[in-house]
Design a protein around this nucleic acid. Sequence first.
DNA 1: GCCAAAAATTGCGTGCACGCAAGTTTGCGT
DNA 2: ACGCAAACTTGCGTGCACGCAATTTTTGGC
Lengths: 217, 217
Amino acid sequence: MTARRAGLREQKKQATREALRTAALRLALERGPDNVRVDDIAEAAGVSPRTYNNYFPSREHAIVAAVTGEREARIAAAVADRPDGVGLADAVVEAIVDQYTAPDEPARDALLLITTRPTLRDAYVEAASAIEHPLTDAIAERLGDTDPHTARVLATSVAAAVRLALQQWLHATAASATAGGLVVPSGSLPDLLRATLAPLAPALDAAEQRARRHPHR
Amino acid sequence: MTARRAGLREQKKQATREALRTAALRLALERGPDNVRVDDIAEAAGVSPRTYNNYFPSREHAIVAAVTGEREARIAAAVADRPDGVGLADAVVEAIVDQYTAPDEPARDALLLITTRPTLRDAYVEAASAIEHPLTDAIAERLGDTDPHTARVLATSVAAAVRLALQQWLHATAASATAGGLVVPSGSLPDLLRATLAPLAPALDAAEQRARRHPHR
DNA sequence: GCCAAAAATTGCGTGCACGCAAGTTTGCGT
DNA sequence: ACGCAAACTTGCGTGCACGCAATTTTTGGC
């Protein structure tokens, strides 16, 4: 009767996960991303190298996870929190923009690190896929659970659009990096996100109208 | 001098590429996918193992490429070929459905092979991403090049939806016995594709209307 | 408290992706 | 025809992902 049902185990797992990604980012910042082996990360976190891959499927994932954190959960919550008066499209777009503008999000030097290495950039972009499932639930909630399939399609498409926006954003900043000057990667990501998600708004609106016309219960 | 300009080199490259993917599929079918090393494929195609990875980024890609072939190009062409009277949404959806129903597409035993191994399934699904760029061009063409950004977003979303449909299709056919599938009754892929792309139709239509209202040239 | 089952960690072995720095082939200008 | 430059291939070395089976740790029932 100590902790919650099956709780202490999970707690420890989250602890090592946290230790791993923190160590990964710290080492990458200290030595540069190419001079940190997965063995180093494992050692710094006090686990075996093999265990590392029980937590992260690749070397890059840990570093990226240190930056992205629990963003997917926060986005889902943010969508759910918008008042019902707000249209679905606006709710989704603004929730996403908010989370990508969150105070701790930048972590300037970490993002700068990521932009330098192509494999890290890819992993960072790919990490946005994690919003798919939480977002599916959030959208399904808003649509009244009438059609889970539609919710999945929309969430998938939104996630894809977000990845596209991130890709273009990083590509732009990388290009301007070679052009000289310090590259604080703030070419207005919010604007880019909004512009990229805009074409999907009609699809979100249409789904919302349909749901309104066929209320579920 | 019968070959096209700057053609002989490229011709050879396509030949080895073809040889590699053919060999990969043949060997996988003969021995089972787990009993074929990349060295074997390379040897069967008469190139060095290192060269294999100059053509395909992973072992699975060659096998999958043998099945998917040049689908992405065919889809783009199919979109372009639809008469102008047809709406953009219909043009895209039907072009995709057509290509995934092409006569040689199934290759029954090959697809069966793919469904068995998770890594192959993933690669097969992922391969659908290749339609993104050709589809972007095709859509941009139909929209009159007014806004390339919108075309990219739409193509990206469509590709994501196609991946989703394939994923569900493969998942359904794999676990048809266990679950009491409350999702789409796992039936024909065309139906699943149409159902999955349907929620995006409003976005495609809206873009088309906008383009019609602001003709470019 | 104690023990058996479940779950997580670990070491090992294997195949693989890929950078790099030779070698080799192709194509083009003169 | 000739030779040079660019493109492609190859061998090598390194780090990595991951299946498997043995081991250690956690948990819940008694």
